[in-house]
Design a protein around this nucleic acid. Sequence first.
DNA 1: TTGTAGGCGTTATCAC
DNA 2: GTGATAACGCCTACAA
Lengths: 343, 343
Amino acid sequence: MGSDVTLKHIAEALDVSAMTVSRALNNRSNVDEKTRERVLQKAKSMGYTPNHVAKSLVSSKTYTIGVVIPEITHAFFPEVVRGIEEVTNTSDYQLFLTNTNEQFDREKDAIHTLQSKRVDGLLISSSQTVDDYSFYEQLIESGTEIVFFDRCIEGIGASTVCVNDRESARQITEHLIESHDFTKIAHLSGPQDVSIGKKRFQGYLEALKMHDLPVQDQWIISGGFQERRGYDAMKKLLSLPRSEFPEAVVAVNDPSAIGAIKAIKEAGLAIPDDIAIVGFTDDIRAPLLDVPLTTIHQPAYGVGKQAAQKLIQTIENEDEPVEDIVVPTTMKIRSSCGCDEPD
Amino acid sequence: MGSDVTLKHIAEALDVSAMTVSRALNNRSNVDEKTRERVLQKAKSMGYTPNHVAKSLVSSKTYTIGVVIPEITHAFFPEVVRGIEEVTNTSDYQLFLTNTNEQFDREKDAIHTLQSKRVDGLLISSSQTVDDYSFYEQLIESGTEIVFFDRCIEGIGASTVCVNDRESARQITEHLIESHDFTKIAHLSGPQDVSIGKKRFQGYLEALKMHDLPVQDQWIISGGFQERRGYDAMKKLLSLPRSEFPEAVVAVNDPSAIGAIKAIKEAGLAIPDDIAIVGFTDDIRAPLLDVPLTTIHQPAYGVGKQAAQKLIQTIENEDEPVEDIVVPTTMKIRSSCGCDEPD
DNA sequence: TTGTAGGCGTTATCAC
DNA sequence: GTGATAACGCCTACAA
């Protein structure tokens, strides 16, 4: 509910018009000071709560943002949401949160509903099963304000906020090559329709290329962003003849790496001695693993904050330009790559 | 946005009344089948999106639920949210998520805004700084539908969904007493205005009492639910003369325990040999710590699911009774209590 | 400074 | 089976 006291009720109680009450409550200048006070007091005593639904109908502005994330239990996303909140909280927007569970169908449904609720804009991180950019293109064409974050679709007219995925993936792969002299490096990849899946894969390839290492198809296993997918992908890798095992593995993200680690252990192999592994995210669990995970730290909070800021500017500013915002990462060297743990 | 096509536009294009369009779109029975099809097709081709804001104004129902949580980065809560989502997703409610950062002021603000947006109901887990139940009482009295979860306020007319905090705290404290013969057991407590703070403390006291152990004020440190608070509380405990150190510590939750562990390590002490420790939550990190944490597993997903179900029933059912729903926990014995790790 | 009329997009209701 | 009208709670625009 909310209260069922309306402007009209207050107006009748005070024997003025509803408009006067509205003006008083909204701090308009053209109200007699005494009237205003009478109104304010009455509103309070009657327990009035403004009805934003009615306001929104008039103004066609809801002060509401739809946030679409693929996996709320991946710790990265709650941290992003916290960043988003930090911004929306001070600018008086509310957040509709929808978790798509990595299902594109659920994502589409959610977005439709959000549109029916007339959100002012959308903050989207695509699910790993996207297969159809045209859905987003239509959305954008129809005037929906969107900012993508993390799992971005670039080049279709919406701003994006991502980390420098390609460079970071290259950097961590190069670390394996340069600091540990590995030449046999596998990649547990993400879906190639999703920006981070593709870019991290590209970064991996780039690193190999820059060091004249051959690309071996059997070491590129297509997996996904969840622990389970990493586990399955690693299993597949471990089904190769022992002599063809890679020395190191670059996982598309930390959950995937954690799944892979499980598979490695189950196979009775040691990390990093038999197989080294690195991730991407800096999951809350990364430093706590038996063998702490070397990974790329992503500033989730900052991603959320920037995405929210950009969206609100886009909403409130006619000619806010479309931008691809890149936020920098830092490499976290721990011991799963073969380094001695610092600290 | 959303589209700016309205019923009226479709009606004009088809030369029928807006009512007919409305009826066709809402699958009412009294529409000619041919008319319906014409409408459906036109609506699609014009890119019509129903305006829920207007609908809500008429029906005074928004199909929207406000979720108020104190700390989105505590992994327990995202998991609860996932449970909530599972229910709301199938019953077509949307979720307004607000994170109060453990600040009661922010919580009150958030709830007011949510009321202005005319949510159909509220799912609340109080912030640790609550100091004023009357706020909730007024809310409930004014007809707002509320279900509390985890951090509950009982006995003021709203349903609650909690784990059996007191029994669980007693059980894990008794484990320290019975399985490890500890007699000197400290408690890092939570705020006593918050249900779980109070009940877990009571459970701790009960266990001591049942085993005729004296309650020592110096071993009861008032802390909070965050890692930082646990750290500070433990520091305080460790400032006692060495001879007065407890043998074991019962922390109010896992984040607090993890903070405390940090303090213990910094003091150069070993877990569990110098000081044993147990938590409450079964945080995602608990099994991964150097010394895996013995704790109480709370079925977060189930808590969310039950809370959402109860709220929706309360919303949709005039005379749904007020209930205090208890969901069972399980004790997770790991090694921080002094046990050998199983498995 | 205050009030009146009209409309935002939808639906309930009653008439045809 | 369909349409006209009024209403939901509020605000813009104009008038007094």
